[in-house]
Each structure stands twice: as C-alpha cells, then as structure tokens.
Amino acid sequence: MALKELFERDWQELESGGVLFSSLEKLVAWGRSNSLWPATFGLACCAIEMMGSTDGRNDLARFGSEVFRASPRQADVMIVAGRLSKKMAPVMRRVYDQMPDPKWVISMGACASSGGMFNNYAVVQNVDSVVPVDIFVPGCPPRPEALIYAVMQLQKKVRGEAFDNYGTQLPMVDAWTR
C-alpha cells in the first residue's frame, strides 16, 4: 500500500484491512511491557525460585522477562528476591539508583515485603522503605508461577491497564520518559 493511499483512505476502511492505529505512547508502552528485563538481585531463598522461574518448565521467557541482566544499567525492573539485611540496604538503593528510568521494583517474598518471619535487628522490615515497590508478591518463597503473575501484573501497570485500591486507573509511563 502506497503511502499516499494511506492518507487518502478512511481509517475504518484501513483498520478492516489490517492496519492498526494507536498513539505512540501506547505503542511504546506495549513494547516496554513485553521486554521487561530484570536486574538480578537475588538475595536469599527466593532467588532460587526466581532462577526456577526461568527454567524449562516455568519459562519466564514467554513474557519477555528472561534476560536477567547483571548490570543495573541494562535493566528495567528490579526483582528484590529475599530478605534484605541492613548491611545490604544501601547497596540495593545504589543499584536502584543506577537503573535507567523508567524502572519498576517487584518485591518478592514475605521477607522483602514485610520482614517476614525475621522481625529482628538485622533485617529491613520493608523494602518499600528503601525503594518504591510496584508489586508485592506474597509467599515464602513464592512459587515461580506467582512471580510470573507478578510480572504480568507489572506489564498491565506499564501499559496503563492497572487500577489502584480505589478503582482509579493508573496512568502509564510517558513515552518520552528517559
């Protein structure tokens, strides 16, 4: 189809012919949501299930998130998998700061979300007090399926299809965000 034709024809006619119209924002968000590259931030037991989610049976690659990047500069989402000790907290903040925008955080496991069973002097009681968390995954450890579901929820959030507790739709991230 020539470009001239594209401008002359009616858009409904075009859509029935297989051409889709979208805003650039939506297109970018769709692209982003299907290639959420996690930064490896395996801390404790949950990290084993995080590794398990990439294996042949669970195959996180189906959702475009199998590329675990060791360098935070190449990652979009940080999966905090495991208990965060007070000694590690500054390191984690630093890794988070090194990630380029837009970035998201999944807090995986009871320990990361609330300190879990370790309510003591050594463990940060809530990862949310160190970095802003988008998705909390419950479980000790959460099954790989739970992590995959969390990634899917995050994809919704990226695409602007998520709602908060009060039913307000959350906006998607601006396409021109760095």
Partner: peptide, 23 residues
C-alpha cells in the same frame, strides 16, 4: 560477608523449640 546477615541465632532465642523448625 554479612550482606545476608539475618540474625537467626538471636531469633531462635525468642522462639519456642518447635517454632525453631521453621527457621
């Protein structure tokens, strides 16, 4: 070391013996 120091040994002292099995 110590970036994963969780305080297990201290926590055991504040849990009953049977609860310790979970830790």
């Amino acid at each position: 070391m110590g970036y994963l120091h969780t305080g297990f040994e201290k926590t055991f002292e504040a849990r009953t013996y049977q609860q310790g099995v979970t830790y």
